[in-house]
Design a protein around this nucleic acid. Structure first.
Lengths: 348, 348
DNA sequence: CTGAAAGCGCTAACAC
DNA sequence: GTGTTAGCGCTTTCAG
């Protein structure tokens, strides 16, 4: 890794003709070491360019001072905001954060989690891959009692700290909002029903319809992976129905946008002829035209909370698992606001 | 970290009444171990739920199998794309990636780099903080001969592998394009002139003006931190000039967008009255209205290349430092295309 | 082909 | 207040 010449506590000790333990203690500000020796040691350490070898220390202490974070995609605003929040808290607490992305693939997720285990992370913060169906790799973490926190996408059958947004409520409010705007036939583009997140969004949608006495029509619900192309395919399918919808609650902003572009190209006016609402409040949703109504999820906060939860488990051996449900916010923008009830300031 | 019960190679050895060294060798597929014993060992390891302790192995091997990545902001499309590229290559090569963000603050960058050194990363990939002015912390990496790769924002005075985009050419082409579109008085919003990146973009701008016989007017150039609010302030300042510009080459897409919104609110038509070009091809730039002309930087590719370079240094002790300049691409969209010479497909 | 032994750099009883 | 010692889990000579 480096030149062999990296100084160790033994080098410092030899230089000062004292023992390595004294050096070790001084470096940790152990009060048993006299101020004088401590200062001498610090001075020599500095002059030799000494840097503690965290690996050795970790081995000895049986901890890595490292928190693992696994996300489906780094390269997505919501997830990078979460990572940013985790990093913020963890760094301040003196932890290193290692990040990996599963690309939503079960196999990559398994490999990552095993590698993190082998690296003896002190805790794991994870949002599971859409494709995952088997959770043995995560159960192992639980079995070994390694702190585990799920965020956004949690596994119901595993006991752990969980932090999610209120997807049900989000789905409910989106749907209610569309109804309030006078839309009569509301479709839904749902994400993988393996994930509670998307189940909840859909259930919120169904519940809101029911509460308003609107019959639920399964042909208006399309389930897919919510990438841009899926949005186009789904909207095509919906528009081919004998009675197409006049509004669509899209499972995320990506599909909301791709649907919107498709519809616009077909000459369908938004929000006049068709209402569109997304989910996640991706940065682009406020700046596209028409701007996209959506549900804001507090990503950065979620990351901070997840980090706090895992630090709690790590440092206080907390063993009562909590599920934290963060509120969502309905942001009404142009794409669904045909009654012009409010105007979101189009600005950063 | 875990329960004490994590099995080690000694536990496996005891179980099979053989020595730990044999187990170690078998686990590494050392050919000196007979197939029979190897298989027995693998079977027992599997049944005991053995996972190698990478920390111990790293200590012994004096390497961490870890690559450090430092970015100004995780939560920015370009940087998260780079991270994604690094992660892609590093993971395949069996390395762990640890990521930290400097928030563009010099002090945080120093703390991060020192922490990464203490963690004995095998190499460091970094894009330096805008606020940084002192590079001692990075020189230390060089002195210790730890592989170092700069991407996007490099330090000229430090010898290392570097991978940048052709910012000069990018700035040049943006400006030439604006001239070709018939804009006569072109302003520039420049980023911190501590960073070569922004110096080059500005120099490209100046050179293009010169080549076209347009005198360079310093009052048309505003230097700031290129956050959204800076864009607004800068455009206000430019519009208050006795002869305001009729086009602005913004240092990034964020300021391009905020300027555009400000101008639109003032009733200035884009691109008719004012041409706007950004830089970086943030995802939103293609979907806003008008869509923003910009320079595409291949983030994911850059990350992959950076990872390849560092692996080369780590594994082949490569000591000839290269600077890789990736080409940029001018993407002409609505915000500067008043001659309608081409139409970028507004789609994913 | 397998084993014994030493040591990576640090920490923490346990001594004095 | 400081030193001695053992050991974290793994790898790797060196022997046989």
């Amino acid at each position: 890794m480096h030149k062999k010449s990296d100084p160790t506590i033994h080098d410092i000790a030899r230089e000062l003709k004292i023992s390595a333990s004294t050096v070790s203690r001084a470096l940790q500000n152990n009060p048993r070491i006299s101020l004088k020796t401590r200062e001498k040691i610090l001075a020599v350490a500095e002059s030799m360019g000494y840097r503690p070898n965290v690996i050795a220390s970790n081995l000895r202490n049986k901890r890595s001072n490292t928190i693992g974070v696994v996300v489906p995609l780094i390269n997505r605003y919501f997830f990078s905001a979460v990572i940013s929040g985790v990093e913020d808290i963890a760094f301040k607490a003196g932890y290193t954060v290692v990040i990996s992305q599963s690309n939503d693939l079960a196999n990559k997720e398994i490999a990552i989690v095993q590698s993190m285990f082998a690296n003896r992370v002190d805790g794991l913060i994870i949002s599971i891959a859409m494709q995952a169906t088997n959770y043995e790799h995560l159960k192992m973490f639980r079995k070994k009692n390694i702190p585990l926190v799920f965020f956004d996408r949690a596994v119901a059958e595993i006991e752990a700290d969980k932090i999610v947004v209120d997807d049900f409520n989000g789905g409910y409010r989106v749907t209610q909002h569309l109804i309030d705007q006078g839309y009569k036939r509301i479709g839904h583009m749902a994400g993988s029903q393996n994930l509670q997140t998307y189940i909840d969004r859909k259930n919120g949608y169904i519940e809101a319809l029911a509460k308003n006495g609107i019959p639920h029509d399964e042909s208006l619900v399309i389930t897919n992976s919510l990438i841009a192309e899926d949005g186009v395919r789904a909207v095509q399918q919906l528009m081919n129905l004998s009675v197409p919808p006049d509004a669509i609650f899209c499972g995320n902003d990506t599909t909301a946008l791709s649907s919107m572009i498709y519809l616009r190209d077909k000459g369908i006016r938004i929000p006049e002829d068709m209402g569109i609402v997304g989910f996640s409040n991706e940065p682009f949703s406020r700046v596209v035209s028409p701007s996209i109504s959506t549900i804001a999820q507090p990503g950065f906060l979620m990351g901070q909370k997840a980090a706090e939860m895992i630090l709690n488990q790590i440092e206080h051996k907390e063993r009562i698992f909590k599920t934290l449900v963060l509120p969502t916010e309905l942001i009404i923008r142009e794409s669904s606001n045909r009654k012009k009830i409010k105007d979101d300031q189009l600005f950063f």
